[in-house]
Nucleic acid binder design. Structure first.
Length: 337
DNA sequence: AAATGTGGCAACCGCCTGCTA
DNA sequence: TTAGCAGGCGGTTGCCACATT
């Protein structure tokens, strides 16, 4: 059936709301309460569509709306919830008191999304994307070294780091073309929508192929080279031991899969697509490192990089969310020149 | 100082869902 | 069962302020 317009649009005003209109709407809702949006504009003396009134009220005029910058905690919550819920902005907003879906959506698109991309994270799947780091140019370069990777982004996702490492190994040894092809397949897989036209069986098959590829990558000897320094063999990075405050751990998620909420001390915890840590200010700039002997070692970023400004702190926030493990055998002194 | 580019955000559009008669 | 409707949602647009050239 055809859907009739919510109201007669002839003669109705569009565009930004004036203070007078806001006043009329607020007064009417204070008297009669929200609802009946179709009849509300007429009763309130507004030349507006009912939808427009509802949107104005829910997104801007509602008294319980929180204004101003998003806090670190809010930002972290949004990222975590988005990894589980996807673009369900209303569902995300329901877990952030005082924030509207529209506000969260805008904030995601203008701030968080870009930040994730800069960190080599696909903002749709929350999975690492090597192509975001322009690895083809790295592969084509005869002298790929860690500095170029660090130059792109000092704080990259662990899976990106690991895959880049494996790529280097393969580049030194045999067939980079094959690996590049596999990585492209990997990225296609990561980008494929939930309703994959190839069907779930094909999707599963691709996932298995991908797991095999990852296993092959992890079994290869791993080398890093930094400028003219000695090549160091380093253990494989893993994602299994990333969580900080939660006992929850999962391997990397491939593609977008609906996951149930997990509860931890009454707190909802999303699946971990990459390493999440609590936004505890006390460990804001701390890398957690692990070698194969499971001896953990914390390295303060303050001792590695320059003291962050306020804006830098903000910028590094997502990096903190993507806290990852660095093998203890990696010598950070080599990185500071 | 003017022109142009860019980012942020409020608002709109069209589709979907659930309720009701 | 179905048509009509209200409300909700996500994607997109367009305006405005600020930055850059």
């Amino acid at each position: 059936m055809g859907r009739s317009p919510c109201c007669d649009k002839n003669g109705l005003k569009k565009g930004p709301w004036t203070p007078e209109e806001d006043h009329k709407l607020i007064q009417y809702i204070q008297l009669h309460g929200p609802g009946n949006w179709r009849t509300l504009p007429k009763n309130a003396g507004l030349q507006r569509c009912g939808k427009s009134c509802r949107l104005r009220w829910t997104n801007y005029l509602r008294p319980d709306i929180k204004r101003g910058r998003f806090s670190f905690d809010e930002e972290e919550t949004i990222i975590q919830l988005h990894s589980v819920l996807g673009n369900k902005w209303s569902a995300i907003a329901a877990r952030l008191p005082g924030r509207t879906d529209n506000e969260i959506k805008n904030y995601w698109n203008t701030h968080i999304r870009k930040r994730l991309l800069r960190n080599g994270i696909d903002p749709v799947t929350h999975s690492p994307r090597l192509d975001l780091l322009d690895l083809s140019s790295l592969l084509n370069s005869t002298q790929f070294n860690l500095s170029s990777l660090l130059g792109l982004q000092a704080l990259v996702n662990p899976e990106v780091f690991r895959l880049a490492n494996a790529l280097l190994a393969s580049h030194n040894e045999s067939s980079p073309e094959l690996l590049l092809q596999k990585l492209q397949e990997n990225n296609q897989l990561l980008n494929s929508p939930l309703q994959n036209p190839e069907g779930s069986e094909m999707l599963l098959q691709k996932l298995q192929q991908n797991q095999i590829l990852n296993a092959q990558l992890q079994n290869q000897p791993q080398f890093f080279q930094y400028q003219n320094h000695q090549i160091q063999e380093v253990p494989n990075f893993t994602t299994q031991n990333v969580p900080c405050s939660s006992s929850l751990s999962q391997p990397m998620q491939l593609g977008h899969v609906e996951e149930p909420y997990l509860m931890n001390n009454g707190q909802m915890i999303p699946p971990l697509n990459y390493g999440y840590c609590n936004s505890d200010a006390s460990d804001n700039s701390t890398f957690q490192t692990t070698n194969n002997n499971s001896s953990n070692q914390n390295i303060s970023l303050d001792s590695v990089f320059s003291t962050p400004s306020t804006e830098d702190e903000k910028e590094s926030y997502c990096s903190n969310l993507m806290k990852f493990e660095i093998p203890a055998s990696l010598n950070f002194d080599d990185f500071i020149m």
